[in-house]
Write a protein that binds this DNA or RNA. Structure first.
Length: 270
DNA sequence: CGCGACTCCTGCCGGC
DNA sequence: TGCCGGCAGGAGTCGC
């Protein structure tokens, strides 16, 4: 489900309810997530005060004065605020109960999400090898160009690799390649510096626009405030197979790359 | 090391 | 209407 804009939308939605509060309890109903959840109620988290809610890649980091929760939403996860004591649904796997009387609830039908606890989250093995943030200072066309030299993998899969750049998921990979006019199957090592400059800019534009729209709601995504995202109205290619390209009217194509669907215009993208 | 295939899991949608 | 196959927003891991 969530790509970077959806995770960022979630972060913004829940942060006001968490920051400054103390974690008064932890209720876990299902530990079988992407990795078995090992943290427990008597661990450091209960009694810790939340300093901030940050995001690194698609991970939410709930920073406290005694370590941080590292939360990933996987494909189908979401977080939202409930009143403490609200009955849990079948896929509501854990709650962080807060001193305010509310709780942060995690729901994830497919259980591809995860929860870890770390004294130093950025050094956690899952986060330590991640590439730069696409909206950060270390990301640029030059960076993509340099990292891609000699790589034969398709450029679409290249930009979806978290060790190259984080946060570019299946929707926004197709969308940014369309805007940059780059064919998704082109070998990453055979994209010029000029075109990587365009691609980096389009990745940033697409992500910023999607964040502004509150993310992309395809099925059941809702931000922490319960509002759906509206970016789906701005999608140019994703999910639009055989529909007319908005630029040249050519029917859009759908292909499969690395077991993921890719959408593109064979005329506008070369 | 790079690359491609496979894997985890449930829900939903379209087709028959 | 009901059933079933296929596909879904991620990404770590394994084999070559």
């Amino acid at each position: 489900m969530p790509e970077l804009p959806e995770v960022e939308t979630s972060r913004r939605g829940i942060a006001p309810y968490l920051e400054g509060r103390t974690i008064s309890g932890f209720v876990i109903r299902e530990r079988r997530l992407r990795w078995p959840v090992t943290i427990d109620v008597d661990e450091q988290l209960v009694g810790a005060t939340i300093d901030s809610v940050d995001r690194r890649a698609k991970y939410l980091l709930i920073n406290t004065n005694n370590g941080a929760a590292i939360l990933h939403l996987g494909m189908s996860g979401s977080v939202f605020i409930v009143e403490s004591g609200t009955p849990a649904g079948v896929h509501d796997h854990f709650d962080f109960e807060l001193s305010s009387g509310k709780a942060l609830r995690f729901r994830d039908p497919r259980r591809f999400g995860s929860l870890h606890w770390s004294a130093d989250p950025l050094a956690h093995p899952l986060l330590a090898t991640l590439g730069p943030e696409p909206l950060g200072e270390d990301f640029s066309g030059v960076y993509l160009w340099r990292r891609s030299r000699g790589r034969r993998v398709a450029v679409k899969q290249f930009i979806m690799t978290p060790q190259i750049v984080v946060g570019v998921g299946n929707i926004y990979a197709s969308e940014s390649l369309f805007i940059a006019g780059i064919h998704p199957k082109r070998a990453a090592g055979r994209v010029s510096l000029l075109r990587y400059e365009r691609l980096a800019a389009s990745i940033q534009d697409v992500l910023r626009s999607a964040i502004q729209a509150g993310g992309t709601t395809l099925r059941d995504f809702f931000g922490g405030d319960g509002e759906p995202g509206y970016f789906s109205q701005q999608l140019n290619v994703y999910g639009r197979e055989s529909k007319a390209c908005r630029i040249c009217k050519t029917p859009l194509r759908a292909i499969v790359q690395g077991q993921r669907s890719t959408y593109y215009c064979k005329t506008c993208q070369t």
